[in-house]
C-alpha cells in the first residue's frame, strides 16, 4: 500500500516539477544551457526512479505471493501521539516570537514532559523552567547568539 502511494506521489511530483521548470523565465545570457537544463534532467531522473519503484513493487508482489505471511492488524494509536506532539511543536513555534524563547520553551517542555515523563510533576516543572531560562541566558549573554526575547524585558 505504502509503496503504491510512493509510486503515485513520485509521478505527481515529477509532473509538478516539470510544470514549475517550464515556468522559469529564460534569459539568454550567461551560459548556453540556462537555468532549466539541470532541473529537466532531474525530472527525467524522477521518472526513471518511478519506473524502478514499479519494478521493485512487482518483484515484491511475486515474493509476497510466494510466501504469504499472516497479516497483523496495524496499530495506529502511536500515530495520534506523534501527530499531537507535532501539532504541539507547531503551536510552540507559532507563539515563539510573541512569548519569547524562554517562556515559550518552558510551556512547551512542561506539556511534553508531563505526558512523556508521567508521575514526576516536580522534576518536570523544574527541568522545563531551568533548562529554558539557563539555556536562554547562556546563549544570549555568554555566546552572543540571538534568540527571541518576546515578553521578557531582557
Amino acid at each position: 500500500m505504502a509503496d503504491r502511494v510512493i509510486f503515485i506521489s513520485t509521478l505527481i511530483l515529477a509532473a509538478v516539477y516539470f510544470y514549475a521548470t517550464a515556468q522559469i523565465p529564460m534569459l539568454e545570457i550567461g551560459d548556453p544551457l540556462g537555468p532549466k537544463a539541470f532541473p529537466r534532467l532531474l525530472g527525467i531522473g524522477l521518472l526513471i526512479t518511478a519506473g524502478l519503484l514499479l519494478l521493485e513493487m512487482l518483484r515484491a508482489k511475486k515474493v509476497a505471493a510466494h510466501d504469504a505471511a499472516p497479516k497483523t492488524p496495524l496499530a495506529w494509536r502511536h500515530y495520534l501521539v506523534v501527530g499531537a506532539a507535532a501539532i504541539w511543536t507547531g503551536v510552540y513555534f507559532m507563539v515563539f516570537e510573541w512569548l519569547g524563547y524562554a517562556i515559550a520553551t518552558t510551556f512547551y517542555l512542561l506539556a511534553m514532559t508531563m505526558y512523556f515523563h508521567k508521575g514526576h510533576p516536580k522534576t518536570n516543572v523544574l527541568t522545563s523552567a531551568l533548562f529554558s531560562f539557563i539555556s536562554y541566558f547562556m546563549f544570549t549573554q555568554l555566546l552572543g547568539v540571538t534568540l527571541a526575547r518576546g515578553l521578557l524585558p531582557f
Partner: peptide, 24 residues
Amino acid sequence: PSGILYPIIVAISVIGTYAISGSM
C-alpha cells in the same frame, strides 16, 4: 529519562536553527 531528553532535543534544535537566521 527519555521523556525529558526528547523534548529538550527539540528545544536545542530550535536554538541551533533560529540562531543562524532568526527566521520563523
